[in-house]
Simulated assay, not measured.
Amino acid sequence: VIFGLGGYIKGLDAFATYEARSRDFRMAVSFAPENARDLLEVGEITLASPALYPYRLHHNEPAWLARVELANKTAKPVEVSLKLRGPELPTIKQGFTLASSSRSSVEIPLPRALAKLAPGVYEYHVEVVAFQRGRQNLQRQFSFEMKDAHDWSGASSDLFHFIQPHEPQIVQTARAVLAEVNATRNAVSIAECFYNFLHRNFRYVSDPRPLHSREDRVQYANETLRLQSGDCEDLTILMVSLLQSAGVHSAFVEIAPQGSAPGHVLLMFDSQQNPAAASDTDNLQRYIVRQNGEQPGRLFVPLELTRLDLPFAAAWQEALALYQKFGMEQYGLAEGWVKIIDTARVQD
């Protein structure tokens, strides 16, 4: 007579037999891991941005590429290994412990190698491996679009990426222009020298978008200097770069009536005068007064760069008229569709 007894206790698998005639008793015990398929739950992958712009990547933006939501479905800690694989990219690995019954949002860092990718759509794979008393493999994938080096998101706050005040060609040009006219170190006279340089040698052209492209394209300052042409963003970026190289603080002004984007871009620069140095009438007719907290206001001079056929004073007056019309009379500053973007983020 053979008797058999089997049973399962969580994590333990046992079976025993007894043969009465031979009095042979045998028992087999094996360690059975929990169902490895139930260790971890992987949620959707969130991208920092569905489109990556090379000019942002050069400034380490965004701070991360993708975010993965993980949940430990067990009552014990789980060891997790996360790998990212994709074209033109060495495998990126992360390892960590996920506490029992917890959730975590894991950020995949932005690989510098992505900046070398050609424009196009790329697919990347995320492999998540969980270890406890078993092993669980999970796969997820995501895709993003890599933009061209000159594609612009349309956000005016991104224009500072294209400024190059320390580029050798920009510095040399700024010095040569100022030396040629022996300009006094006055911010307004410096700006007038640079404007006259553009007035004589450059021309405005509309944005040269490729066929079927919805992207606005922007040139770096040294490219506009070489081509001697550009649209409102390109010429403004070059002028800002020249001013910055000469130590004159400036800012972009975006005018997008009723929130249309991208809008028209012009600039304003610090005249380095205190408002008290000018009469109230002069302030209203010629300058934009900018307050800086409790500090005395500064007088800024606006400039329109798309009308290079105009003399400096007329370009100044035209920019001021645009600012007053859309920013003040139509409450564009209050509504948010007239924006001032300082260029202080430019790094050495």
Rank of each mutant, 00 (worst) to 15 (best):
Q172D: 12
T91L: 12
F25P: 01
V42S: 02
V346F: 06
Q347I: 09
Q141F: 13
F194G: 03
E107W: 01
N283Y: 03
H59A: 15
L235K: 10
R217A: 00
R23V: 12
L89R: 08
R103V: 05
S153D: 07
E304C: 04
A221T: 06
S213V: 03
S156I: 15
N201V: 05
R23E: 15
L333D: 04
L227A: 10
D231H: 14
F31N: 06
E69T: 08
Q132E: 07
E254N: 12
L117V: 08
W152E: 00
P165H: 10
G230Y: 01
M27V: 15
V80M: 03
S271D: 03
L89M: 11
H150Y: 05
H59F: 14
P119T: 08
W152D: 01
M27A: 15
A277Q: 15
N274V: 02
L238R: 02
E123H: 07
Q291R: 14
G247V: 02
P257H: 06
I108A: 04
N35V: 10
L114G: 03
A334D: 15
K83I: 05
G332P: 02
V126P: 03
V129T: 14
L310W: 14
A256D: 04
A63L: 12
Q169V: 14
S241W: 07
F3H: 13
A118V: 00
G43D: 09
L98C: 06
A315G: 11
G134C: 03
R140S: 13
A313E: 11
N186P: 02
F252Y: 15
E223L: 10
M27W: 11
A277G: 04
V42T: 07
P165T: 09
A130H: 02
E69C: 01
P62V: 04
A321K: 10
V128N: 04
V346G: 03
E88F: 07
L117C: 06
G297T: 08
T46M: 01
A176L: 08
Q136R: 09
Y287P: 04
Q317I: 12
S250H: 03
D216C: 00
I170L: 05
K10W: 06
G86F: 04
Q258I: 01
M146F: 03
F15T: 14
P302D: 01
P119R: 11
S81L: 12
S260P: 00
V29C: 10
Q219K: 11
S30M: 15
Q244M: 15
F131N: 13
V121F: 01
F31D: 02
L320H: 13
L47Q: 00
R290V: 13
Q136H: 08
F269R: 09
F252T: 09
A314N: 06
S143T: 12
G332L: 05
Q258N: 11
L242V: 06
A14N: 07
A14Y: 14
D216H: 03
I255R: 08
A155H: 11
P210K: 05
D151F: 05
N201M: 03
D151Y: 09
L114Q: 07
I9P: 00
R112H: 10
E215V: 00
Y331R: 15
F194V: 05
L235A: 09
L299W: 08
R85F: 05
S49A: 14
F202S: 01
P111L: 13
L178V: 04
E127M: 10
M239P: 01
R135T: 14
A174D: 00
A314L: 11
Q347S: 10
P111D: 09
A71P: 00
H199D: 01
S241V: 08
W316T: 01
